[in-house]
């Protein structure tokens, strides 16, 4: 890992730096005292049951939630326009309007993001057998998820934040999504991905973070976990989060 990072000429190797981050909604403490540093060149799994604070953490990193306590920086910048240019974000729900077809969305992406690779995206639509002029509302759920992932991964970003990219999908979609992530991953970027379907995807992570009731209870290399615990990440997860 260090050999990858040493190629970075940047003064800081900290892609994400979170210090003493807390967030509460009225009386409910959603995140408490999160400290986290992530470097470029990793695929990181953010794991936790529903309500553990995963989406809140992601929304803070992507600038959607602006009120919180503590310090959060991406590539040395506080969250704002500068970080939005560095982050490619896949939200956990669809954001397309009813009238849109893939070509409309692609032209919006082209306008918004100078790092978006339109040709790659069109090529992928062809490979998926998607009609670029078919209304998105008429596409299957699996197809929409694949299309959305392509949009996000075909930006040349520093940080990819994927909130539950494996929603309610079939195994073929799952393979497509994992392949797309691995194919487009590059060593200067980090992929930060939340999921609750651990057993299927843990092999593409190198680091996992367990979030429990708004706190990080574990952050480690997956093969360290396997050798020290003698368990897969999925098995360990089931133990830590047993009801």
């Amino acid at each position: 890992m260090s050999q990858i990072n040493s190629m970075e000429s940047n003064q800081t190797n900290e892609l994400i730096k979170i210090e003493n981050l807390s967030k509460r909604y009225q009386k409910k403490q959603v995140l408490s005292n999160i400290n986290l540093t992530l470097e470029p060149g990793h695929i990181v799994g953010l794991l936790g049951p529903n309500g553990s604070g995963k989406t809140t953490l992601i929304k803070i990193l992507t600038g959607i939630i602006k009120e919180y306590n503590g310090s959060v920086t991406i590539h040395g910048n506080v969250i704002g326009p500068a970080t939005k240019a560095l982050v490619s974000y896949l939200p956990d729900n669809s954001y397309f309007s009813k009238w849109m077809n893939p070509l409309d969305v692609i032209s919006i992406f082209k306008d918004f993001y100078s790092d978006f690779d339109e040709n790659k995206c069109l090529e992928m639509l062809r490979r998926l057998g998607l009609n670029p002029k078919q209304k998105i509302t008429q596409m299957s759920k699996g197809m929409i998820e694949r299309f959305q992932l392509c949009l996000v991964m075909f930006r040349n970003a520093k940080l990819y934040i994927l909130d539950e990219p494996l929603g309610g999908i079939d195994p073929a979609s799952r393979d497509f999504i994992l392949d797309t992530i691995l194919t487009n991953y590059n060593e200067d970027a980090t992929i930060f991905m939340s999921t609750h379907l651990i057993s299927d995807v843990e092999r593409i992570f190198d680091t996992v973070i367990f979030l429990k009731d708004g706190e990080i209870v574990l952050q480690d290399d997956i093969d360290n976990i396997r050798s020290s615990e003698g368990k897969s990440i999925d098995q360990l997860f089931r133990e830590v989060f047993k009801c």
């Binding site: 890992m1 393979d175 392949d179 691995l182 194919t183 092999r203 992570f205 190198d206 997956i222 093969d223």
Partner: peptide, 17 residues
């Protein structure tokens, strides 16, 4: 490394190792 990682569906850092 990248192609092998894709073929085995594993993290590139794991394949590197």
């Amino acid at each position: 490394v990248r192609d092998l990682a894709i073929r085995f569906e594993v993290n590139p850092n794991t394949m590197q190792r």
